[in-house]
Write a protein that binds this DNA or RNA. Structure first.
Length: 932
RNA sequence: GCUCGGGUGGUGGAACUGGUAGACACGCAGGACUUAAAAUCCUGUGAUCCUAAAAGAUCGUGCGGGUUCGAUUCCCGCCCCGAGUACCA
């Protein structure tokens, strides 16, 4: 039989499913290995050819690790809460659970066809109550915890309460809100429960607080910073505005330092780590309080403005101060004379959209408040301005402006004609600011003559002594907003009593999503859950927002370890066994979302003693994105400027007036249009004419996003129907390096398919009868085999799957040339190929007389370097680094003899021409160059 | 602007620590088989020069320099493409 991929693939997929071949065991004497993919959101469009790229790579690795004797956990599931199902529900009234279920079934069918070795018995779905029960449970643990800076870990809130009861707020160093009270034990105990609870909320790791949020009116929900792009929602592209709301937040900032430090311990791509570092945005500097010079008549709300600066050493160069227009002190600082101007400026900033503000980044604007602060180092009077280049959300929302050292301050000073004072002797400030740290200070009183390091230490010491400043570390990262005004998400297990949030009883978990009539906000503007009639907790109102998309994905890898546990999110035993993810494959778009939140929750679970590895994903690989590759046809335009039904081949379009049209890539092969298929594609093209080149119609090409409207979506089902899953798997790897983004291009797929046929034919005679020989393999055959054994091992270990595929082709070509059908060779060859092309490998494995299904755990063949030793090899030598010649040298020669042989050989002597060489370059025992 | 990737034949891409650049595949050209086509197989395929042919020579990894016996690889400067980020004090 010729290579019948359809039957073979169906047969083995059924076998694997029926025999649970890839079921992972939680008890094994083998070492464990956990290979994880970022689980997909099951969208209605199904998988396109780009989605499985990472899954194929991880599957190859998982299968390889099994061959290497590991107990491999390789699961798959669905991140099944999300907006599209809900949008669809709003439009059609269909319950998102139904849509989701249907989409999951499509995904599952498509995934099964590709022949993945997933352990489906451990499948998880974030929208399933037995999964989100534990998402809610973890939320409750976060609510019941606070972050103890002294111990540098999260601790139970009860411990904090005990401390308050016995010692008051003294001695507590916590990550918390800024407006915490300080109190004695007696005062605490005298507080009512209501006030105590309110105070505790400022410490909890998940808490309710009024905060400015990204509100998207069109979507009717709050978005996280990473879901907003340039002032528009990432999904849908609707405008986003700032709004103050009571919101659930996660105190991720408590973990900022650990999240930063942990990056140094994990094997992740450097760019990704860099993104997280930038996101966390640590800057080391100082905070300084500048006393406000109050006029007697004005109210004394606060008598200083605090700034954060990374260059406290430049404090003698401060000539003005700038605060954000939203700064809370603005009203009290504005003098009556300046009020009109300030109000106008604030009104103007409010009007500006995020986009305008960015476009305006270079134009200087601002307004004077009329008030002054005193520079604490020299008691000089410094005017206070407001300007939108200062962000309310970073630092303290106020900056000390040093125009000689900071370019923005410089431009501002020039615009408002404020003094620019140089403070370092080598500063050049004629045309722009000079932020140098070299040189010695001038105009800086007690710092004069010091260098950067000395000066910084000195000024901090001075400020600390005066009690107006201290060294401080600042982070850019904000606490994560945790509420969405949406239906299709995890309900927050909280009810309200006396306006205070309370957790529901643990035994009432999961808090199920209630049924509602419509998936829209209520008429009063409450989230969709507000429509659930009679939905309350013993008469008390539930929280109506649901959790964001990242909640379930922040811990799901633990659920795979023990997917059916009803009593715990995963048993301690299972977590102790599987520990962490050894290899995680997914896209870099999750850098500052999922991958950061997951690390945060993981650290929290470790603090609680519920997990044991500080970092959840030891090694991470970002697979590149598969872009679409669009094809175009060119419609001839007639003299009246109307489109005709004649199409011009791409090479000839310069000679005609044409318009470009997308054409379905599935009716184009190697950029040549299938004219018949084109005529059938659409009614209007039935009678199309073509101006061709050499009898062919060439299409134009462009790389774009894969999308339906561009007719460049390639469905894996079609590829599998034509060439089979093994071809698809190998071709996706062959396309290029895994981590590189590249356009999908079916042009070369024939080559991979031909390879698999050749491989099949190694085991068969010309009539396609299975025929292998038990003769002893020849040296040449062993050499081919062992080259590939080593190559594939090396390639897989360094995730270079594309080069492996090439090497397979070479090996099979060599063995075909040798007419090799030796059982011993083919036996090992099948094992080595099996991670890449598992179906054909299983079939041949069985034909070779092995027990069906035993391939997945067959031992990977051991590489023997002896077989690579040749008797003679072509020895390349360059002369003067240029001329090259090849000598045939016997490998039996010793290195010293080789040298003699080379130098005395007639070819070399010809070049030497009687002279002795000046220098002989030897690399690894080989002469590579002779300098004459 | 800043940070991180990356520029190699007609195309996708190899070359792992500086050591025969262009593996492998696609495409293209020629040939075999065939009444014909498809499929399959074989040969050639960086450019230029030279040759009847064999052989040979020169150039060649974005551009310009440098280090080295030797550079796609290392260093300096520049250009272009992609990704992330954006007034972060």
């Amino acid at each position: 039989m010729d290579y019948q991929f359809k039957e073979i693939e169906r047969k083995w997929q059924q076998f694997w499913a029926g025999h649970q071949t890839f079921k992972a065991d939680n008890n094994s004497s083998k070492p464990k290995y956990y290979v994880l993919d970022m689980f997909p959101y099951p969208s209605g469009a199904g998988l396109h050819v780009g989605h499985p790229l990472g899954y194929i790579a991880s599957d190859i690795f998982a299968r390889y690790k099994r061959l290497k004797g590991f107990n491999v956990l390789h699961p798959m599931g669905y991140d099944s809460f999300g907006l599209p199902a809900e949008q669809y529900a709003i439009q059609t009234g269909q319950h998102p659970a139904i849509t989701t279920e249907a989409n999951i079934n499509t995904y599952r069918r498509q995934l099964d066809q590709i022949g993945f070795s997933f352990d489906w018995s451990r499948e998880v779905r974030t929208s399933s109550p037995d999964f989100y029960k534990w998402t809610q449970w973890i939320f409750m643990q976060l609510f019941n915890s606070w972050y103890n800076k002294a111990a540098d870990k999260a601790e139970s809130i009860e411990k904090l309460v005990k401390h308050f009861e016995t010692s008051g707020s003294a001695g507590i160093d916590a990550v918390c809100d800024e407006d915490i009270l300080s109190f004695t034990a007696a005062k605490w105990n005298a507080m009512g429960n209501h006030q105590q609870q309110q105070e505790l909320l400022k410490y909890r790791l998940t808490y309710l607080r009024e905060s400015t949020v990204n509100w998207c009116p069109a979507l009717g929900t709050v978005l996280a910073n990473d879901e907003v792009k340039d002032g528009f929602s990432e999904r849908g592209g609707y405008p986003v505005e700032q709004k103050k709301m009571m919101q659930w937040s996660m105190r991720i900032t408590a973990y900022a330092e650990r999240l930063l430090q942990g990056l140094d311990t994990i094997d992740w791509p450097e760019p990704l780590k860099e993104m997280q570092r930038n996101w966390i945005g640590k800057s080391i500097g100082a905070s300084v309080k500048f006393p406000i010079e109050r006029q007697e008549s004005r109210a004394k709300s606060q008598d200083y403005i605090e700034v954060f600066t990374t260059r406290v050493d430049t404090i003698f160069g401060v000539t003005f101060m700038v605060i954000a227009p939203e700064h809370e002190l603005v009203p009290s600082l504005t003098t009556p004379e300046q009020k009109a101007e300030i109000d106008a400026y604030i009104a103007q900033t409010k009007k500006k959209s995020e986009l305008d503000r960015m476009a305006d980044a270079k134009t200087v604007s601002g307004a004077f408040t009329g008030s002054y602060v005193i520079n604490p180092v020299n008691n000089e009077k410094v005017p206070i301005y407001i300007a939108d280049y200062v962000l309310a959300g970073y630092g303290t929302g106020a900056v000390m402006a040093v125009p000689s050292g900071d370019q923005r301050d410089y431009l501002f000073a020039k615009h408002f004609d404020l003094p620019i004072v140089p403070i370092i002797d080598i500063q050049k400030i004629e045309t722009e600011a000079d932020p140098t740290k070299e040189g010695r200070y001038i105009n800086s009183d007690f710092m004069n003559g010091l260098n950067y390091k000395e000066g910084t230490a000195k000024v901090i010491e001075f400020l600390e002594q005066k009690g107006v400043g201290k060294a401080k570390v600042n982070y850019r990262m904000r606490d994560a907003i945790f509420g969405r005004q949406r239906y299709w998400g995890e309900p927050v297990p909280v009810y309200f009593k006396d306006n205070l949030p309370h957790l529901i009883d643990e035994k009432d978990l999961p808090l199920l999503l209630p049924e509602i009539d419509k998936y829209l906000p209520t008429e009063t503007g409450e989230p969709p859950l507000g429509r659930a009639l009679g939905w309350n907790y013993h008469g008390f109102d539930y929280e109506l927002s649901t959790m964001p998309g990242w909640a379930g994905s922040s811990w799901y890898w633990y659920r795979y370890m023990d997917a059916h546990n009803d009593n715990e999110f995963a048993s301690k035993k299972a977590i102790e066994y599987w520990k962490d993810v050894d290899l995680y494959i997914g896209g870099s778009e999750h850098a500052t979302g999922h991958l950061l939140y997951s690390r945060f929750w993981n650290k929290f679970l470790v603090d609680m003693g519920l997990a044991f590895e500080e970092e959840p994903f030891k090694k991470l690989i970002n697979q590149g994105h598969i872009q679409g590759r669009s094809n175009f046809v060119y419609r001839l335009i007639d003299n009246d400027g109307r489109g005709t039904n004649t199409f011009v081949s791409h090479g000839l379009i310069k000679q005609y007036k044409t318009s470009e049209l997308h054409v379905d890539v599935n009716i184009v092969e190697n950029d040549i249009l299938d004219i018949e298929k084109f005529r059938n594609w659409r009614e209007e093209y039935k009678d199309a004419d073509f101006i061709q080149e050499n009898g062919k119609y060439h299409c134009g090409v462009e790389v774009e996003k894969m999308s339906k409207s561009k007719y460049n979506v390639v469905n894996p089902d079609d590829i599998i129907a034509r060439h089979g899953a093994d071809t698809l798997r190998m071709y996706e790897m062959f396309l290029g390096p895994l981590e590189q983004s590249k356009p999908w291009n079916t042009n070369g797929i024939e080559g991979v398919f031909k390879f698999l046929r050749k491989f099949w034919k190694l085991f068969h005679d010309d009539q396609f009868n299975f025929r292998v020989s038990d003769e002893a393999p020849s040296k040449a055959e062993l050499k081919s085999l062992h080259k590939i054994i080593r190559k594939v091992e090396e390639d897989i270990e360094r995730f270079s799957f594309n080069t492996s595929v090439s090497s397979f082709m070479i090996a099979v070509n060599e063995l075909t040339d040798l007419k090799c059908n030796k059982r011993a060779i083919l036996h090992d060859l099948v094992i080595v190929l099996s991670p890449y092309a598992p179906h054909i490998s299983e079939e041949l494995w069985e034909l070779l007389g092995n027990k069906a299904g035993s391939l997945s755990n067959a031992p990977y063949p051991k590489f023997n370097p002896e077989y690579l030793v040749e008797d003679e090899f072509a020895y390349p030598i360059s002369i003067n680094g240029k001329m090259k010649l090849n000598l045939n040298i016997s490998l039996a020669l010793e290195p010293a003899d080789i040298e003699k042989f080379v130098l005395e050989s007639p070819d070399v002597q010809k070049y030497l021409d009687g002279k002795t060489p000046k220098k002989v370059i030897v690399v690894k025992g080989r002469i590579v160059n002779i300098v004459i």
